[in-house]
C-alpha cells in the first residue's frame, strides 16, 4: 500500500473507551472527521464532473456522529448503515481506496461495483452493505445482536438510522424485539431535522426520538451530535452497557447535514438562517478550536495536507482501476450461479 493510503487510513487504532481523551486521541478524531469531510467534498465534485455515476447522499456536518460512535467500537463489532453511508463506512474502517473505487463503479471497489454509494460496506471491518431502504437496518440489526447473544461473543452491533426512519414500522419492531431479547445493540439515530425535504416536527408530535425509548423499556439519551467528544462519551457508555448484556440503548444525536439531501437538492425547504446557525457549530471547526491550546496550527495544517494527499491517492487509484467485467453482473445472486439465459 502506498504511503498516502496508509497515512489516510480512517481505521480506529484503539477501540476501547478511555475516560481520558488526550490530545493525541483528539487529534486522531479530528483527522478522521476531516477525512470524511474531504471525501464528501471531493466525491461531490467528481460526481458533477461525471466521473462518479449514480447518486450521492452526503454527510457533511454529521461527521462527529460517525467518528465518535465508531471510535468506541472494535473491529469485530458490526454496524448497519443507510442511504447516507460514506461517513459510517470510513469511520468503521472501510479502506479509503476501495470506498472511492466503489463510488467510481470499479472492480476494485469494496463491493466490486455491485453496491455503489448507497450500499458501501465491507464485512472484513464489520460493516454490512449499507441498507438504502429507510428503516431497513432496524430489523436486520436485531439478527446481528441475536447471533452475538447465541454465540456468546461479546460483540456489539450499532444501527445507524435517520430520524425519518423512526416513523417506519421497522423502528418499532426492531427496538421492541431487541429490548425483550436484551440484545447487544445500540440504535444510533442521527436526527438531522429533515427526512429528505420533510421537517421532523411535521411528521412527529414528539420532537425527540429518544423520548420514545421508555415506551420500550430501554434507556434513551439525547446527545449533541456536533461535538465529537460528547458523541464519543455517550456512545462509549451505551456500547459498554450493551456489551455487558444490559440490552439495547437508543441514542439520539442532534445534528445537521450541511449539504442537500442528495445531489441537486437546492434546499428550498429550510432557511439560510437555520443553516448558518448549524454551520456555526461545525464539529470539525469546533474540535480544531478546542485543540488550538494543545496543538500547534502547523500540526493541524500538516494533518489536513495528509488527508488531502490520501484523497488524491484514492481518486487516482479509482481512476486507474479496471472496470468490472460485464459478465460479473451475473454472479453472486446465489452461492452457485443459477441464472438462466434470457431467450432473446
Amino acid at each position: 500500500m502506498s504511503d498516502g493510503a496508509r497515512v489516510g487510513s480512517a481505521e480506529p487504532d484503539s477501540a476501547e473507551l478511555t475516560a481520558d481523551v488526550d490530545a493525541t486521541r483528539q487529534l486522531d478524531l479530528y483527522r478522521r472527521m476531516q477525512f470524511i469531510r474531504r471525501f464528501e467534498e471531493r466525491v461531490y465534485l467528481l460526481y458533477l464532473q461525471g466521473e462518479i455515476p449514480g447518486t450521492l447522499h452526503q454527510s457533511q456536518g454529521q461527521e462527529a456522529v460517525a467518528v465518535g460512535v465508531c471510535d468506541v467500537l472494535r473491529r469485530t463489532d458490526w454496524i448497519t448503515s443507510t442511504h447516507r453511508p460514506h461517513g459510517h463506512a470510513l469511520a468503521k474502517g472501510v479502506d479509503l481506496r476501495s470506498a472511492m473505487a466503489e463510488l467510481f463503479g470499479k472492480a476494485t471497489g469494496c463491493c466490486g461495483g455491485k453496491g455503489g454509494s448507497m450500499h458501501l460496506g465491507d464485512p472484513s471491518v464489520g460493516m454490512l452493505p449499507a441498507i438504502a431502504i429507510v428503516g431497513g437496518g432496524n430489523t436486520v440489526v436485531t439478527g446481528l445482536g441475536l447471533a452475538f447473544k447465541l454465540m456468546r461473543t461479546d460483540q456489539v452491533a450499532v444501527c445507524f438510522f435517520g430520524e425519518g426512519a423512526s416513523n417506519e414500522g421497522a423502528f418499532h419492531e426492531g427496538l421492541n424485539f431487541a429490548a425483550v431479547q436484551h440484545l447487544p445493540i445500540v440504535f444510533a439515530c442521527e436526527n438531522n431535522l429533515y427526512g429528505a425535504s420533510t421537517p421532523f416536527h411535521q411528521v412527529s408530535l414528539v420532537p425527540d426520538v429518544a423520548s420514545r425509548a421508555p415506551a420500550y423499556g430501554v434507556r434513551g439519551e439525547i446527545v449533541d451530535g456536533m461535538d465529537v467528544l460528547a458523541v464519543r462519551e455517550a456512545a462509549g457508555r451505551a456500547v459498554a452497557e450493551a456489551r455487558a448484556g444490559a440490552g439495547p440503548v437508543l441514542l439520539e444525536f442532534k445534528t445537521y447535514r450541511f449539504a442537500g439531501h442528495s445531489r441537486g437538492d437546492v434546499k428550498g425547504y429550510r432557511s439560510r438562517e437555520e443553516e448558518a446557525e448549524w454551520t456555526a457549530r461545525d464539529p470539525i471547526v469546533r474540535l480544531r478550536e478546542h485543540l488550538a491550546s494543545a496543538v500547534e496550527e502547523v500540526v493541524l495544517d500538516a494533518m489536513d495536507a495528509q488527508v488531502e494527499a490520501a484523497m488524491d491517492d484514492a481518486i487516482e487509484f479509482a481512476r486507474q482501476s479496471p472496470l468490472p467485467r460485464a459478465e460479473d453482473a451475473l454472479t453472486d445472486a446465489y452461492a452457485t450461479v443459477i441464472s438462466r439465459e434470457t431467450s432473446s
Binding site: 458490526w78 454490512l128 432496524n138 430489523t139 436486520v140 440489526v141 436485531t142 439478527g143 446481528l144 445482536g145 441475536l146 447471533a147 452475538f148 447465541l150 454465540m151 452491533a157 421497522a170 419492531e173 426492531g174 424485539f177
Partner: peptide, 10 residues
C-alpha cells in the same frame, strides 16, 4: 430481520 441478520453472522 432477525433471521436475516443472524444468518449474515453465520
Amino acid at each position: 430481520g432477525a433471521a436475516v441478520g443472524a444468518a449474515l453472522m453465520g
